[in-house]
Design a protein around this nucleic acid. Sequence first.
DNA 1: TATAATATGGAACAAAGTGTTCTATTTCTA
DNA 2: TAGAAATAGAACACTTTGTTCCATATTATA
Lengths: 221, 221
Amino acid sequence: MNGDHEDRRVRRTRRLLRESLLALILEKGYDKVTVQDVLDRADVGRATFYAHFHDKDDLLVSGIEELVASLRQHLAVAARAGSHESHAGFDLARALFEHAAAHRRPYRAHVSGRAGAVLRKYAHEQFTTLLREHLHDVASTHGATPVVPLEVTVQYFASALLGVLTWWLDNETQYSAEEMGNMFLHLAKPTFAAAFAVTADIQKGVSSDAVTFGKELPHAV
Amino acid sequence: MNGDHEDRRVRRTRRLLRESLLALILEKGYDKVTVQDVLDRADVGRATFYAHFHDKDDLLVSGIEELVASLRQHLAVAARAGSHESHAGFDLARALFEHAAAHRRPYRAHVSGRAGAVLRKYAHEQFTTLLREHLHDVASTHGATPVVPLEVTVQYFASALLGVLTWWLDNETQYSAEEMGNMFLHLAKPTFAAAFAVTADIQKGVSSDAVTFGKELPHAV
DNA sequence: TATAATATGGAACAAAGTGTTCTATTTCTA
DNA sequence: TAGAAATAGAACACTTTGTTCCATATTATA
């Protein structure tokens, strides 16, 4: 059987390349790093590089995938732990800041301003996917009807979260992960309430001033 | 007197170069556009290009500056018009979406996902600067004390706004500028309230559950 | 441990792009 | 119209990219 284990040389090469790129991003920013830089730093031959990765972007993405996997796992644990209190696992944000604090180096390289356009886009996609699933769940579980098109809310939250996180990563942190998480939640929660109309409340006529936007609901035009 | 007027040839050259870059960004995305592409499209000589701009980024930034100037003017007008109603010119957002709708092409090229890292960063800086000034004004005018560090709120709003705008630009719009502005405000307003504690209310003890974050206020730690 | 498989290093390569310099020519302003 | 200034074009050295070939090394495994 071999299925699972790569050749030791392969593992070594890929690890060296990923680590070198990471270090170089932190030093010069992704856009200014050349393949040659990575080769020199990793002390790996040119032909070898192209045997493993199609180009610089490919290496970059490969590097972040393990970080994303690690984050997803961390979030899953956090979701299970806190699902009964507060806003139904809404402390995903808190968990994210914790995870970022625990893996500050890769986060700075891959999420902050030092990262290139490729990764910012990738990170944004990860966040929107996560939030889309989450909001969808919450909506159907709590019988909440979107007042604003769900996708707009998703983009809104994902961008705000990514933006605050990026700022925190790029500015020598004066706030702890916990503080950041709490601040974000404090800002986000009221919006969360505004984005959905709880069906029960509507029946009570409480949400009389709730306006519905977009074309999702027929009577809204 | 010459002071104001550039040589007609200079105007023509710069205009051609900017327009060519704009068109090429929309076709291929900024990162894949080469100086040679711009030269060919504009039918301008290589030496001429480098007589005017230091490099591709320089041309890019020069191109966006007139857009920003135009936006600032539009916002100033909107602020004057609506300063008495609603949240003290908070409909800056509405005005932004209007402006973006009126200048869709340059917005798509310079703000959306097709733009490079350079411009995203530039746009983010413009937004934060604008918001920072605005929130500062509102805070001092209305005697509102930040509950969350002002810079965090700035980053939060700027990112959310830029994110929603980008999404709107990149996805063949099904929503009008007015709808987008209204949706954004609907999401943002509650957060705005949560970000500040109005001094008058504090004296009445209404904000008893307001938590203060960060190290800005001495008693918060 | 011997061997067959395979990953690596190094060099050489064409292709594409960058930014500079020089000169002849065209176009502008005054 | 004349002098000033901008432009086109070509040639240049330089950097980076991605590929190919082959000798050498390391590895898994029988």
